[in-house]
Design a binder for these strands. Sequence first.
DNA 1: CTCCAGGTAA
DNA 2: TTACCTGGAG
Length: 368
Amino acid sequence: MIEWSSATIKDFQTTLLTWYDEHGRDLPWRQDQEPYHIWVSEIMLQQTQVQTVIPYYERFMDWFPTVAALAEAPEERLLKAWEGLGYYSRVRNMQRCARQIMADYDGQWPTTAAALSELVGIGPYTAGAIASIAFNEPVPAVDGNAYRVFSRLLEIDDDIAKPQTRQVFEDVISKIISPTRPGDFNQAIMDLGSSYMTARQPDSEHSPVKRFNQAYLDGKELDYPVKTKKPRPKPVAYVAVLAKMADQWLMTQRPSTGMLANLWTVPLLRLEDLPLEDWTIATPLEIEAAVSAYFKQEYQLELTAASLPVRPVTHTFTHQKWTIQLLQGTLEPGDLAFFAGKTVTDTELATLPQPKVQAKIWDRYHAR
DNA sequence: CTCCAGGTAA
DNA sequence: TTACCTGGAG
């Protein structure tokens, strides 16, 4: 890691902020310094690129214009607003946070990073972003962009996969951040990280901070940031049951904890949970019979099932790779007392919050 | 298809 | 440390 003199730091601040004043992006959440606006945008941007976030942000503000409105929203509305963005626990945490602000702070946001960190769903990054942008507190906002930008500027070799490394970056950035315009400084770093200093195809030749970029000057840009790899996702085999009862789709709501919590899908059964001799070598006919037996046993529902002659749907999460065979079925009229779900018309179907993997299942079904 | 990026909670 | 989701690049 290299060190900058105080003259270099001042030079960098001026160069960065001058560039930001000229070329910073004009985004919906940069119209004012409302902490609510900053917060919503930051939570969305944690996981998604700007172009995708914009329409979600506009609709979110339309549906939930204030912290008070968000605190009172029905959960299904919340999940619908977040449908397709992923990491659904975040929007539930946002509502818990909104309720904390109403109950503990009388609707007024706390104004320091330390206090913001106490709120549900607000970690060190988001606390720094809100405190610096909305309240002008000179604190760093260390996200993936900051890791990438500063590791290259200063050739910081610490492994960003290790939690302790955050402190190294916070210390470094604290010395470099503009004391007068900390919010703009942090946002300029984000813009730099998504334009000239990208992960795979940086364009430092044209970057406004080219001359400060030690890794670029040394031809080692792509060596930064240093990050150890994660293990491969584990394969899991599923069968999706697209079943109708009296012309209505059978849908299930997932449990309130774990993956895709509270979202709606067609019944998804792990092959290894079905009554099969050996699920790794089961034939379509054996799977049909096993699924019917499972429905009878677990839900007390009479299902006639037929495999669909389509490619399985694949969907990869960080830690699991799902391969999903599609199966079509018809249910005898019966009660759903033992089934965690309901039957819906096509119109009602569209109102249920559903994850991307379910969208893929519908796509494959309709393309058959 | 594979690989990878990205914050917080538990 | 591991779970949580989707999208983009190659």
